[in-house]
Amino acid sequence: MNRLLLILWSLGPMLWQLYTSFRPNAALTGNPLQGGWTLEHYQSLLEGNPPFWRYLLNSGVVGLSSTLLTLVVAVPCAYGLSRLGRKTARSVNVLVAVAAAFPYVLLFLALLQVARDLHLGNNLLALSLPYTGLSLPLAILLLQASFRDIPPELEEAARLEGLGLWQRLRWVLLPLMAPAIASASLLIFLFCWNEYPIALTWLSRADLLTLAPAMARIAGSSVFTVPYGGFAAATVLGSIPLILLVLLFQRQIVSGLTQGAIKG
């Protein structure tokens, strides 16, 4: 019974969107059981200018590049912190944790200034820079905890065998951290995919919009009519990649979420 309630609470709103997205606009204001079905909403989204998949692609590009960049920057930092004394690392970590919880929307004005000064606006790859900065705290906390979980003898053994720092990372430490890296990557990717205020202010060209600002633009496009069929189709299309991601990687996402919060 409780379980049913939980499922209904979680899935109900999404199912309603799915249902709406296949209904002709005229039928939406009538009896919910009559009025037939249609694919027109999806058609118009995919034939729009730019087509809807473009936003998904943009989000994917930004998400992937930001995730990669974050890992590249965070791994050495986490390694360094994990090799510091516990006391020093702890005080650094408190600050990192504060940054991780920071409502980053408050940063948009300063970051927008950066974009203007350095001409980084309307550039998907440049958007990875603020995203990397914003994802770093979580990545550092997760990876650092994972570094600390590896017994120091393993690295010492590798050192004695003549492995340099890079070789130790590449062959011994990072393979052992694969689960943590997967968790961190997924969370970073989710964050970048969903991020709104920075994308909203850095991107203005319609064909470069990521999903979140595109969604807001769709929502704002028609205030007086009720094009909810189109809206619903957009929410469905915008949700599918994430739903797939959650279904596939539920375990890693959950472990990343809880680890990040607990160790930080």
Binding site: P151, E153, L154, E156, A157, A158, R159, L160, E161, G162, L163, W171, V172, P175, L176
Partner: peptide, 29 residues
């Protein structure tokens, strides 16, 4: 530096690389 001493150390915990097979444990170095 440790690697240049020609020293081998067997650790109390053995410090085997858990993600590698016996053969790879031996061959990695």
């Amino acid at each position: 530096p440790p690697a240049d001493r020609g020293v081998a150390l067997v650790f109390q915990s053995y410090a085997l690389y858990p993600h590698l097979s016996v053969e790879r444990n031996l061959s990695l170095g």
